[in-house]
Amino acid sequence: MDRFVELENIRKHFDTKKGRFVALQDVNLTIRQGEFVSLIGHSGCGKSTVLNIIAGLLDPSDGIALCNGREIDGPGPERAVVFQNHSLLPWLTCYGNILLAVERVFGAKESKLQLAARTEEALALVGLQHARDKHPHEISGGMKQRVGIARALAMEPKVLLMDEPFGALDALTRANLQDEMVKIVEKTGSTVVMVTHDVDEAVLLSDRIVMMTNGPAATVGEILQVDLPRPRNRLALASDPAYHACRSAVLDFLYQKHKREAA
């Protein structure tokens, strides 16, 4: 499907005490099924707002948001979200957190045994079988984020939405998780929309990079097609001129054309 997620003339404003703040204006974007799209831009450019509109957590003020041919009406498990700060429930174990999602999505049709198998499978996908019975406060930030990803993937969403999923992690952990994400996406063929401000991360993972202009009234500035062959390998890419061309294109957009004045 070529037009799996479709945003048409999206406008979003927030009414604040200081008056109306227009966050997004004329945002048009279509995403193919199985595509990995990154939204990149300076902070405050409304990239998370775009993601939240696709998630259904925010309603657009104007314009149409479609997923799989139907208008997006509120959040739902077919559009799973990996939140920036993992958002695991602290009183449930890793297993419990994933099971909560699995139960909600498949509980009506499947037996307890099948639900348990799905949960174990999701844990295995992110390599966390050993932390199965640990609570979130007992594991590292990277592990928490992996549980968050596993929870989202276990729902078998039509679209996986990730809001700066690796933003809160240290550089090494982030690189490891990115590499894992490359493998997971190749394995599952998920449609993914990821918000990031990390240029390398965007180039490494994406099929297309959507670069957003600065707010207020931010919109899609340019879209870069990343035609690097998959499977991608961080080390091999480091000496690949095509990789560097993509990287400079994004950097050029962010730091030349839409340079942000130091706040």
Binding site: A55, G56, L57, G74, P75, G76, P77, R79, A80, V81, F83, N85, S87, L89, L92, L100, A101, R104, V105, M155
Partner: peptide, 19 residues
């Protein structure tokens, strides 16, 4: 964040309360 998780999962009011 927790309530957003509940919204994405479309948990029932009862489940939101207990979980």
């Amino acid at each position: 964040d927790y309530l957003n998780v509940a919204r994405v999962l479309r948990l029932s009011e009862w489940k939101v309360f207990t979980v």
